[in-house]
Design a binder for these strands. Structure first.
Lengths: 359, 359
DNA sequence: CTGAAAGCGCTAACAT
DNA sequence: ATGTTAGCGCTTTCAG
């Protein structure tokens, strides 16, 4: 067995040992051409003897011009990106599809902070395609760097980009459906807890000016959907889709209300994690869900720890979204025309929404 | 702006355009040699004109023999691996350290199922080092494949492997500490909810024979730590560290007990997610925590959704573990001697453990 | 079916 | 400080 310090055998050595040419030896491994079974076996035997485990990927990559690597650009901070089950399920579907084609997924942290130097990985790692999954902004510098390098981009969230496939969900319709559901239950004072509208961790009420500036598409489109049905009595921005931020926001929205009669009777949160935080906040405030306050979310996550409550939520097909992104990547590699694909969402009623309390 | 279909300019073209040799042009980008500021600027200007954004990583990699990629082998299933906050935090620390050295992290799914063909990525993707973070078994076929290829391995969980650095936590001491805490509170009937002992999703009671076969180190060592202090009245294996499995296990352990007087007064779970499931199960059974039953976990996660309860838990330094793994990887690349590093853990008391109820 | 030859894009000796 | 040269390991025409 060769020591790790020893140089590994090369295809040339194997060919030599088997008494064939390198090109023939190459064929024995790739199977991409005619070769007699005997020669093939002879080459493989020689390889076995020399401890050659297959063509060096680096040589293959340079020759073929492809790395077999798909960069997945995750937002601000890896820890945050993966703390969110939404991201995780999308990634899962994506890896599945890419894995079947032998493509590896490279995690690339995007901008860490506003104005921070762009990640060197974005600027110089080998990748055949980059997938932007979380929070691509208009004029995102990462996008500029990548396309400048000639790395094609697939957008999994964010604005349409010329020449790049886009996979999105029907945020606006979904949000509208949730609000319509609440309105049909008799609710008129509905509060909204939003996802982040842009970079810079902000929390607090959203006014029309701020709303007009929203650059992150999920929040932007879901806010629009809400207002397709009615104007929320108050809209509260959170810095991230985390339970604790939903809790904090709901505590503001439900707890500080004087006089009590003005308190919202329903809360629509832009994510299930935020909604779950709101449910817990309601419990902590001594409010019954849904008798005193109805709460609906967005994502359709399975949250066993919210037991016995089951969130009413706009369910989005997360794995499918990942898979669709994967197919979009394959399409790019195969030279297909970039397309926009919109995945449907639908409201799933749980136990956290009910009729508005009698005035 | 060149179209994506057009071939990108090469260093040779840039050198030509700037009127210098390729090697000089290379120096202008790498900075790894003497070059006059003027020439350098001339080269960069030429590059700008031609839309050359830097050396092609594929060429560089082949030449230098390094891919700049670290493979992170995740257990069975990506979705599962990232649903667990423990994995995520470790990954976060790892990416941070590697990112600072310009190394990218490639996610590699390990065995999907028992007997499934090994992932082609393991067998043939370019990586300078592989990190095994989740559930490496004795004689793990992935490990064999990787070392056979000459890819050095760093173990983040699992058995010691000759020549490979190992980063572990002090599972056994931590578990013992948790049990000692419970015993000091007067508990004698303590039940245990374990992490998976091996492949194959199993759930049910663990007897001595099964325990002897445990191949996954976290469960193995934590079980040993428990028994350093006392023998649990019952030990229940789960198929994965998920809230729902903790819930199911605790429902068995606490609910089915006839006569009631035999019911365990405390539960130690091998993970916080399992423990959280146990807390919820206790609530669902109408048991007060900690008055009727004390519950302790392992990991030291922040679980805001368990509010108002705060888990008593053996806290492990997850980010630090990831960082230590990162440094171990750098060590391997720098030719350092492989070492074993054991990180300390410590018990953090929350609100879920209290004195044993009076008989 | 097999072999010879060219070259993917780059870096690192070595020579100047 | 710059240029010349020689590959890194492989795949892929193109001949035979």
């Amino acid at each position: 067995m060769p020591r790790s310090t020893a140089s590994r055998p090369t295809l040339a050595k194997v060919a030599d040992h088997a008494g064939v040419s390198v090109s023939t030896a190459s064929l024995a491994f790739s199977g991409a051409g005619p070769i007699s079974p005997e020669t093939r076996e002879r080459v493989l035997a020689a390889a076995r003897e020399l401890g050659y485990t297959g063509p060096n990927p680096l040589g293959r990559q340079l020759r073929s011009g492809r790395s077999g690597i798909v960069g997945v650009v995750i937002g601000d901070n890896p820890g945050r990106a993966f703390r969110d089950p939404v991201s995780v399920q999308v990634l899962d579907g994506l890896m599945q599809v890419l894995g079947e084609r032998g493509l590896g997924v490279l995690l690339v942290p995007g901008l860490r902070r506003e104005g921070a130097p762009r990640d060197p990985l974005i600027a110089s790692t080998a990748m055949d395609v980059a997938v932007l999954v979380w929070g691509a902004l208009t004029d995102d510098p990462n996008v500029a760097t990548l396309t400048g390098r000639g790395v094609p981009v697939v957008i999994g969230e964010g604005h349409r980009l010329d020449g790049a496939p886009l996979v999105r969900i029907d945020d606006r319709t979904g949000a509208a459906e949730a609000i319509r559901h609440l309105r049909d239950l008799g609710h008129t004072r509905i509060a909204e807890i939003t996802l982040p509208l842009g970079r810079g961790e902000r929390s607090g009420p959203v006014d029309d000016a701020r709303r007009a500036l929203a650059d992150l598409t999920p929040a932007r489109h879901r806010m629009a959907g809400v207002r397709d049905v009615l104007e929320p009595v108050v809209s509260w921005e959170t810095p991230a889709s985390l339970v604790e931020h939903g809790h904090a926001a709901a505590t503001e929205l439900l707890g500080q209300w004087v006089p009590n009669a003005q308190r919202p009777t329903a809360v629509f949160a832009h994510s299930d994690l935020l909604a779950a935080g709101a449910v817990i906040a309601a419990r902590d405030l001594g409010l019954r869900v849904p008798e005193d306050v109805s709460i609906a979310g967005f994502d359709g996550l399975d949250l066993p720890w919210l037991s016995p409550d089951v969130l009413t939520s706009v369910s989005q097909p997360l794995r499918e979204k990942g898979e669709a992104l994967g197919h979009a990547v394959l399409g790019v590699l195969d030279g297909a025309e970039p397309a926009v694909q919109t995945l449907p969402v639908h409201l799933v009623r749980g136990t956290t929404t009910g009729p508005a309390p009698a005035a």
